[in-house]
Design a protein around this nucleic acid. Structure first.
Lengths: 342, 342
DNA sequence: TTGTAGGCGTTATCAC
DNA sequence: GTGATAACGCCTACAA
């Protein structure tokens, strides 16, 4: 039998469509008694609103905004590409997507962009940015205007964001550590740790998880202190070369950040004659090639396509005050090796 | 500016709504000249039909069917659970889902079930079953009736199925082999291969991929012939125990099928005192616990939730003659270890 | 061969 | 407070 409609509840409750609608959308101007009557009819018939019909009637468009840093790291470009692909496919989903870019070294510019957004022109915001007090304030304001906000890739735990879409970076680091330990076996040796910057919370969390697992499960392997390379190729080359020369026992490199470009370039120069296990994060053109060419052994990643689609679904749902399907929105920590590329 | 509607094309082409509709849906009774005029208006305005409005108007429901074997293997139950979860969440998607079960040793029963389905009561079928001549015929008939058919998990390459939703099992086997080789390191030794049955095409393909990689990249490791255990616990225990006793050099076990239950039970008895690397397929309650308890080292898997949702999307799209978003429908070969569980 | 009118389930603008 | 009534974008009798 067919789903009950507003007409059915109207009949059942002995009121008109308009009244049912008022109750459904919690609009004022209905006696409490009537509200109760309508609600019980809704209960009894098991009514669930047809969102597509509602959206048609109100000519709804979801105006969503992605906020991204203007970083050189390939991962950000990968994310941007995924967003653009989603845009291309969203014509059919009543969704208008804008991308706002901010200079990644300038949190004020970010906040300034965010200030432009109001409930009159945006229905949801997805933010990929480091947490700062200014950003916290900006989010407070967005929420005060009733605009849903989700954190992307890097969580903003001390803000009022509605949802975080990304992976647990401690677990991602633990996964990297587990693979490093298993790949090295019980041969001892030591692992060099490369990181773009220890400012970013994701990097810190990954390093933490990595160290946990190495200490717990592979104590015979020594993990060296982090080397910050700021995504600089020359610096990377110099530092890595120096450390490799200095210590003869290095058999693993862990690249914590999402910019393994410099490292991969260097390794490509070596031609992998060194028998070093290399593990990094985020699947990009660079790391994909590196896996294929045996320059890297594993990449811990998160599916950007999934992240973007999840952000869109979650923001639309929040904007409608609807529930989300948890299992569908969980972003998995993916392990990518040579053989399961794509 | 707003998306053009049928009204806009009607105006632009100087015809009525009904004519536009006839052209859009390729219905007969329109002069070629008129068709051309309407089509060029559609082109010019960049019209793209609002599927939700169309579905509302025609009170469209997608009546989809999943066909599954009645197997004891936990993987099938996992898949079934995922379908039921999807059903629970599909109220809002104009989709009615039925599950048809057939005794897995009886392909005739499968074909008989399929015969019941007609264009009058089903809009799409997703089939998880081994390919047989009878099944091929049944699919020919479904397609002849205009019913979209997708293969689930295990491809049906020699049939007219519209789409395959699942992973490349050769690549899955290669991935297992890669991890086995990396985990064992260059210690030599030999790997025992357990398989429920070599009848199933997926098992054969995985074994093939596994052997490829082992031969190419880890020639120092010996891979033993497949032991068929037919998911039987007693048999597994006897065989595995015997082989382990007979050959002292076994340091790896590869469980090819999707029923690692018997093996895990046995290993649990051993308490993992044996230093054997164990790799299997499909994440289920059993393999999840085994990873957590260090009884297994890695599980190669495919996300059943994703598979089911993909099947629904693809069948709906095919049913409407729409394109699918390839990148969204590609099922990934997932590697699951202790640290990236869930 | 083409057009008119009404309806799909919901919302919104009026009156009463 | 409440109820007709007309949209939204599309489809489908039924007329013409």
């Amino acid at each position: 039998m067919a789903r009950p409609t507003v007409n059915d509840i109207a009949k059942a409750a002995g009121v008109s469509l308009a009244t049912v609608d008022r109750v459904l959308n919690a609009r004022p101007g209905v006696r409490e008694k009537t509200v109760a009557r309508v609600n019980s009819a809704i209960e009894q018939l098991g009514y669930v609103r047809d969102v597509t019909a509602a959206n048609l009637a109100r000519q709804r468009r979801y105006r969503l905004v992605f906020v991204l840093p203007d970083m050189p790291a390939l991962f950000v470009r990968t994310l941007r590409d995924a967003i653009n692909e989603a845009i291309a496919n969203s014509v059919t989903e009543r969704t208008d997507v804008r991308i706002l870019t901010f200079p990644n070294d300038n949190p004020h510019a970010l906040v300034r962009s965010l200030r432009e957004l109001g409930a009159d022109d945006t229905d949801g915001v997805a933010i990929f940015a480091p947490e700062t007090p200014h950003l916290r304030d900006a989010i407070v304001r967005l929420k005060a205007e009733g605009i849903p906000v989700v954190a992307l890739v890097s969580d903003l735990p001390n803000t009022e964001r509605d949802h975080f879409i990304g992976v647990d970076n401690v677990a991602a680091g633990r996964t990297a550590g587990f693979l490093m330990g298993k790949f090295l076996g019980n041969t001892g040796g030591s692992v060099m740790v490369l990181v773009s910057s220890m400012q970013a919370r994701d990097n810190v969390e990954r390093r933490l998880g990595f160290d946990q697992v190495m200490a717990e499960s592979f104590p015979e392997i020594e993990v060296l202190p982090s080397l910050e390379n700021h995504d600089n190729e020359d610096l990377t080359a110099r530092v890595v070369t120096a450390v490799l020369a200095e210590r003869g026992d290095i058999n693993g490199i862990y690249s914590v950040g999402h910019g393994s470009h410099a490292l991969v370039d260097l390794l490509r120069g070596y031609g992998r004659r060194s028998n070093i296990t290399v593990i990094g994060h985020e699947l990009t053109d660079v790391t994909r090639d590196a896996l294929r060419d045996n320059l890297m052994d594993a990449v811990i990643s998160q599916n950007v396509g999934h992240i973007v689609r999840s952000a869109l679904r979650v923001l639309r749902a929040k904007s409608d005050g609807l529930d989300i399907v948890q299992s569908q929105e969980r972003i998995r920590i993916e392990i990518v090796v040579r053989e399961n590329l794509v």
